[in-house]
Structures are given as structure tokens and as C-alpha cells.
Design a protein around this nucleic acid. Structure first.
Length: 403
DNA sequence: TCTGGGGTCCTAGGACCC
DNA sequence: TCTGGGGTCCTAGGACCC
């Protein structure tokens, strides 16, 4: 509500939400000036969706998440570039470093977003609004991409504000303006309210955040469930998290790891499925071994031609990070589905209930060899590390085309 | 050339134990 | 013997986020 030019008002707003503008697209074209002012999309290839679109492409109505076909129909002349995740990660790390030079209280939320508590930096760098501009200038100068910043007293409001600040802007929402800012917003703007819940609330006559704020908590909980109802009620009434918690990945490991893949064309052949499950199991367990975690629950995901998606899971007696064990379990779950009427579009493998390896002791069952598959996996990991992925592969993956 | 891939959390029912 | 209740684990699905 307050333009960035009045820094005093931001002094009561120590929380910043920094969000890169069209991150993947911006990184992809930052060294290609000839693409800056033409429509560009990242992703959206065969059976894919748009990962990111620059602002000229958005002017045609292209949005991330849209199918490549839809994007093409809206703007046939858009330039399509492929996603380079390694580069995205490098830029992300550099940007997060800039944030950490401002304050140690940085909560990296995704590759291109972070929350910062800058209360400790005010004496050194000026008001939060000035710090926001300082960050934007540094990101622009050092990484040649733009970002927008929301400045508020609480986390969710800062996030809402950064969205309104886009592109390439800053928006400050001081505490005494928070209610006036929040209440006219559509409920769908709130974090955690997606299309389904928004539609439900709208049908019930609750269209704005203000409508929600005037609804008793118990009523909201009956409408949308206990947890979401409580969250919604809190947020609409202005109660919200005010602290930023830096996450350390080793201290707070992932709860699950998975991988799934859409086939180039739909598949019915069990052998093709089995081979794909082996690739996915290998990919997932390699990541688990790198992170030094193991898990007991193996989950299979199958999406059919008609887009119905099912999951089946099974919990093993002991945690595993062994490719062959995860593959065998995924294949068992697949076979247990029985005869299928539909072709399959996507399969996925996920391992849940991850524990640090130190806490994941296996009970060696009678007759089980002390060495075997785990050693084979680690040997393969070492070869991959030295010579690159794909040098060593299970025999089953050597024959036939990869999907 | 309709609709990706990586996750998280919540809900609900049933099994099982106390 | 009957009844009730709470807690935890497992499984499946759904909604949401980036």
C-alpha cells in the first residue's frame, strides 16, 4: 500500500519475501540479449508444460503450468528454450549468498524465493524498504536478473506483497494497513487456497478474505477441514508467523524422495514398465545414498491414459536404500494392480519415511549375505562419480529404447 | 501436439494395542 | 462380559505449492 519511497513506514516490517521474476526464463536468456524483448518460454516440449515464461510471452496469456500446445496456440512465434537445472541451481545459490550477507536469518523457500528477517541489519543498511532496494540492485548487478520484494511484519503478508510488487518492484504493507490490504483480496490469493478450495468457498458466498475473517473458526473448519480451517481463520484475522527459520538440510532431511516420468507415448507392455521402474528406483536410491538416508515405505504411482492417477504403497520391515529392493517392491505393487484396461502414461517411484543412515539399522535376516546389492550400488555410485552417469547400468537397461 | 516433476501436509478408515 | 475410548501405524487419495 505504501510505495517504496517512504522508508519510515517499513521500519515496523522486518520480514522480506524476495521472489525472482520469471526465474527460469530470466536465467535462460540473460546471456542472450536478442531474446530479451521477444516471447520466450522454458519447457513445454513433447507432452510437457511451460516451466516459466518471460514477460513478453505472458503478454500473450502464457502462464507456467500450461501445456506446450496451449502456449503454442497463444503465441506461435514464441522462442522455446530448454531448462538447464544445473544453471538454475548455481544462480540460486549465488542469490541466497547475497541474502545471507544481509542477514543470517534467511529461509530459502524454493530455488527462486526466500524469506528474510532483516531486523538485525537495519542499523547497518537502513530501513527494510531500503534493504529491499539494496538486495534488488545487487541481484540485478551480479546475476543480471530482476526480483521483487514484499515487505511486511509477517511472513504470509510479505509473500502476498511480493506478488503484487511484480515485476521488478517493492511493496511495503505496514501493520496498521494490513487488514485494509488483506480483506478486499480474493480468498484464492491466500497461501494454501487452491482452485478447488477457492471454488468451494465462493459457492458458499465467501469470496474475499474479509468474508472469511467474519466467519467463525468452527464454521470454517466444518467447511474446509480442521487444519485448513484453523489456518484460514488465523490468516484472515491477521494472525501469522513472524519468525524466519533458516533450514539446514542435514538437520532437517527430506521426508521422502521420488522420481516419476511421463512416457513419450503411452505404454501397455509390462517389460517396458519394469525397465522404467528400475531406472526410477536407481535414480531415487542414488539420491538417497548421496544424502545418506534410507526409508521403509516404497510407493508406486501410475497415471493412465485418461489421467486418473493411483498410488500403491507398502512398508518394509527394514529401511532400505538398495536399488534392487526398491525396484522389486515397486514391481510387486505394479503386478498387484492386476489386469489393466488402459495404457499407462506415467509411472513413479517414491521412498517415504526417510531416516538418517545412522538410525536406519537393518536386522540381518537369517541367510542374508552381509555383502551383495548394497555393495554393488555403492560401487556403481563411485563409477558414476568418476566417469559420469550412464557408464554403468543394470543389464536390463542396456537393451531396448529408453522411453 | 491437451495436462511435468519435485515435494508437503491433511483426511479418513481399518487394524491393533492398551 | 460388555462397552467405550485413545493412540499409533498403515494405506489411499486429494489438495496444494514451486
Amino acid at each position: 500500500m505504501t510505495p517504496a519511497g517512504s522508508p519510515d513506514r517499513s521500519l515496523a516490517c522486518p520480514i522480506l519475501h524476495v521472489d525472482m521474476d520469471a526465474f527460469y526464463a530470466s536465467v535462460a536468456i540473460r546471456d542472450r540479449p536478442e531474446l530479451q524483448s521477444v516471447p520466450v518460454i522454458v519447457g513445454g516440449g513433447h507432452r510437457g508444460v511451460v516451466l516459466s515464461a518471460n514477460y513478453p510471452a505472458r503478454a500473450y496469456g502464457i502462464r507456467s503450468g500450461m501445456s506446450g500446445r496451449q502456449a503454442h496456440d497463444l503465441c506461435p512465434q514464441a522462442v522455446r528454450v530448454s531448462a538447464e537445472f544445473g544453471e538454475f541451481e548455481r544462480v540460486s545459490r549465488s542469490v541466497m549468498e547475497i541474502f545471507r550477507e544481509v542477514t543470517p536469518l534467511v529461509e530459502a523457500y524454493s530455488l527462486d524465493e526466500a524469506f528474510l528477517d532483516v531486523s538485525g541489519a537495519v542499523r547497518r543498511l537502513g530501513s527494510p524498504a531500503q534493504i529491499a532496494e539494496h538486495i534488488r540492485a545487487r541481484v540485478h548487478d551480479e546475476q543480471r536478473i530482476d526480483c521483487s520484494v514484499g515487505v511486511a511484519a509477517t511472513v504470509s503478508v510479505a509473500k502476498l506483497a511480493s506478488r503484487r510488487a511484480k515485476p521488478d518492484g517493492v511493496l511495503v504493507v505496514p501493520p496498521d494497513e494490513m487488514v485494509a490490504y488483506l480483506h478486499p483480496l480474493d480468498v484464492g490469493e491466500l497461501f494454501g487456497i487452491g482452485p478447488k478450495t477457492r471454488a468451494r468457498l465462493h459457492r458458499l458466498g465467501l469470496t474475499t478474505v474479509g468474508d472469511v475473517a467474519r466467519t467463525p473458526r468452527a464454521t470454517l473448519q466444518l467447511l474446509v477441514g480442521r487444519a485448513l480451517g484453523a489456518q484460514l481463520h488465523q490468516l484472515a484475522s491477521g494472525a501469522d508467523r513472524t519468525t524466519v527459520t533458516p533450514r539446514r538440510s542435514d538437520h532437517d532431511p527430506d521426508r521422502s524422495m521420488g522420481s516419476d516420468e511421463t512416457f513419450g507415448r503411452d505404454v501397455a507392455d509390462r517389460e517396458v514398465i519394469s525397465r522404467e521402474l528400475l531406472r526410477l528406483a536407481g535414480r531415487v536410491t542414488a539420491r538417497m545414498r548421496r544424502a545418506r538416508v534410507a526409508g521403509r515405505t516404497v510407493a508406486l504411482r501410475v497415471r493412465y491414459t485418461d489421467f486418473t492417477t493411483i498410488t500403491r504403497s507398502h512398508t518394509l520391515p527394514d529401511p532400505t536404500d538398495v536399488t534392487a529392493e526398491v525396484h522389486a517392491e515397486a514391481l510387486r505393487l505394479f503386478d498387484a494392480l492386476g489386469p489393466r484396461r488402459l495404457r499407462i502414461r506415467l509411472v513413479g517411484v517414491r521412498v517415504e519415511g526417510l531416516l538418517p543412515l545412522e538410525r536406519a539399522h537393518r536386522q540381518l535376516s537369517i541367510g542374508e549375505r552381509e555383502h551383495g546389492w548394497p555393495d554393488a550400488d555403492r560401487a556403481v555410485d563411485r563409477v558414476h562419480q568418476r566417469f559420469g552417469r550412464g557408464v554403468v547400468r543394470p543389464a536390463a537397461l542396456l537393451t531396448g529404447d529408453r522411453p
